[in-house]
Amino acid sequence: MRTSLFLAVATALVASVSAHEGHDHGDATPSVCLTNPADASCANYSIPAANITSAITEICTASKFLPGCSLNNACTADKGLNPTYCAPLTVLATLCTAKEDTALTQAVCAKTYSVFCGATSLIPNCKTQVAFPGLPSGKLVTGAVYSVCQEMPGMSDCKICPGPDASGYSQCDEVSAWKGLCLDMPKMTQCPSYNAMCSSTTFAPF
């Protein structure tokens, strides 16, 4: 009787320890892939949505005029838009890979996207959900809009955006102004990048 009781207690203790160890391992996996995405275990890992959306929110709360934020707004407003362009990681990639905008995005991107989607990352979504093709940085869009509106201030879409402030950006929906100007006069010298983007994508808001 005592032997049976001892074996039962021992078995229960082993099961409890095993379950506890398994639980710890499960909790550890996300932190491994978000800090060392080159780890072999990350080949089947999906980045938690909260990590991505919180980074987007932080950037766009401070710099809502950036093209990546316009993309995020369009995708949020219409859930039926092409998921290829509206995946949250695509939005974050668009914000974090725009080199001319790093002064505004680096603080957030350096602790999120640049870590878990770095060059050696094995996380699959980093390779499939890339930046919106052809969408320029906010700095370049601001420059294009400002240049057009200096030449032709009477164009209706020039009313959307004032000139850039001391930061070098216009505090407005830059993409909307850029789109309107280039649709009105697609042969303007400031519009090749817009025309190229539209020829390679089918995304209604842009």
Rank of each mutant, 00 (worst) to 15 (best):
M1H: 08
S4E: 08
L5D: 00
A8F: 09
A10C: 06
A10S: 08
T11L: 13
T11V: 13
L13Y: 08
S16L: 15
S16Y: 13
S18P: 00
A19G: 10
A19W: 10
H20F: 14
G22L: 04
H23C: 00
H23A: 12
G26H: 15
A28P: 00
A28N: 07
P30G: 03
V32H: 04
L34H: 06
T35E: 05
A38Y: 08
D39H: 14
D39S: 12
A40C: 00
C42A: 03
Y45E: 05
I47M: 08
A50H: 12
S54M: 08
A55E: 05
A55V: 05
I56M: 03
T57A: 14
T57F: 11
E58Y: 09
I59W: 13
C60N: 09
S63R: 12
S63N: 15
K64M: 04
K64L: 02
S70A: 14
S70W: 09
L71K: 01
A74K: 03
C75L: 00
C75G: 00
T76Y: 06
A77S: 07
A77Y: 01
N82C: 01
P83D: 06
P83N: 04
A87P: 02
T90Y: 02
L92V: 06
A93N: 03
A98P: 11
E100M: 11
D101A: 07
T102Y: 14
L104H: 15
T105R: 09
Q106M: 15
V108R: 14
V108I: 15
C109I: 12
A110K: 14
A110H: 07
Y113D: 05
V115G: 02
V115A: 01
F116C: 10
C117Q: 07
G118N: 15
A119V: 14
A119M: 08
S121N: 07
S121A: 11
P124I: 06
N125C: 01
C126F: 11
Q129G: 00
A131P: 05
L135C: 03
P136Y: 11
P136L: 10
G138I: 14
K139F: 15
K139H: 13
T142F: 09
T142L: 04
T142S: 14
T142C: 09
G143C: 02
A144W: 13
V145T: 03
Y146K: 10
V148E: 05
C149T: 01
C149L: 02
E151F: 09
E151K: 15
M152R: 12
M152V: 11
S156W: 10
K159V: 10
I160G: 04
P162N: 13
A166N: 11
A166S: 14
G168P: 06
D173G: 03
E174H: 04
E174A: 13
E174C: 05
V175F: 08
A177V: 04
A177W: 09
K179F: 02
K179R: 14
G180L: 01
D184P: 00
D184H: 09
P186R: 01
K187L: 12
T189A: 12
P192G: 03
P192N: 05
P192S: 07
P192Y: 09
A196N: 13
M197L: 11
M197N: 00
M197F: 03
S199L: 02
S200I: 06
T202L: 05
F206V: 11
